[in-house]
Simulated scan of single mutants.
Amino acid sequence: MNKILIVDDDQELSSMLADYLGAEGLQVSQATDGAQGVDALLKGEADLVVMDIMMPVMDGLEALREIRRHSSVPVIMLTAKGDDVDRNIGLEIGADDYLSKPFNPRELLARIKAVLRRTDTSSTKPAITIDTLNIDSASRAATINRSKLELTSTEFNLLYLLAENAGLPITKKLLSEKALGRKLKPYERSIDMHMSNLRRKLAAHDAEHLLTTIRGLGYQLTPQRKSH
């Protein structure tokens, strides 16, 4: 049974979501502010965190920063409708996905299931080596020059998808459907934000040249050589 941690100071909404998700076979725990959420995550186990941004004591963005110092657990952020600034900051910090309030609980459930499917290691794919980059699907870990790349769940999925199709451009539409598990909305920049994070992490290992932006289309991993 997958464990979901809901972090939201709206206790009525949080309890309603806990009942709804629980009825769908998920084990749900709750926290009412960011500090409690971080503490609960680090003390216990969670397969995924659903976290609001606007909270007392420690807001969702600060809590996400703290979580990313210790864990790559998938995080879905809840944002105010039309609040593009907080949404983009959340993605920059390392959120895997976001959902704007108000939302239908069925949409949240669909997002949760999509993320959990992407992180399921029961049916693994072959490891891929491209130049000095190694991507291991079984452990969901990536290294470059034998140094670990600290990736979020979504960043790992994007990198693996690009590596599977190395040398070929992949559209943002396909990246969203395969790596995020949902269709890309008009004017949505979530894929661009995730790819910007991925490029920055590759650059820290002098490997940003591997990732190429195909203007007006999407992205491509461009190796010097590829082997399996």
Score class of each variant (00 low, 15 high):
residue 37 G to P: 02
residue 37 G to D: 07
residue 37 G to T: 13
residue 37 G to Q: 13
residue 38 V to R: 08
residue 38 V to C: 05
residue 39 D to R: 13
residue 40 A to G: 02
residue 40 A to T: 05
residue 41 L to C: 01
residue 41 L to S: 00
residue 42 L to Q: 05
residue 42 L to N: 03
residue 44 G to M: 05
residue 44 G to E: 06
residue 44 G to W: 01
residue 46 A to V: 05
residue 46 A to F: 02
residue 46 A to H: 06
residue 46 A to L: 09
residue 48 L to I: 07
residue 48 L to K: 10
residue 48 L to V: 01
residue 48 L to G: 01
residue 49 V to A: 05
residue 52 D to N: 12
residue 53 I to A: 11
residue 55 M to T: 13
residue 55 M to V: 14
residue 55 M to P: 04
residue 56 P to I: 15
residue 57 V to C: 10
residue 58 M to L: 11
residue 58 M to C: 04
residue 59 D to Y: 14
residue 60 G to Y: 13
residue 63 A to S: 03
residue 63 A to E: 02
residue 64 L to V: 03
residue 65 R to T: 08
residue 66 E to I: 02
residue 67 I to Y: 03
residue 67 I to E: 09
residue 68 R to T: 06
residue 68 R to V: 03
residue 69 R to W: 14
residue 69 R to T: 09
residue 69 R to M: 12
residue 71 S to M: 12
residue 71 S to G: 12
residue 71 S to K: 14
residue 72 S to F: 15
residue 72 S to P: 03
residue 73 V to Q: 14
residue 73 V to A: 07
residue 74 P to G: 13
residue 75 V to A: 06
residue 76 I to G: 10
residue 77 M to T: 08
residue 79 T to N: 10
residue 81 K to E: 08
residue 82 G to C: 04
residue 83 D to H: 04
residue 83 D to P: 01
residue 84 D to M: 01
residue 85 V to A: 01
residue 85 V to T: 00
residue 86 D to L: 04
residue 87 R to H: 03
residue 88 N to R: 11
residue 88 N to W: 10
residue 88 N to K: 06
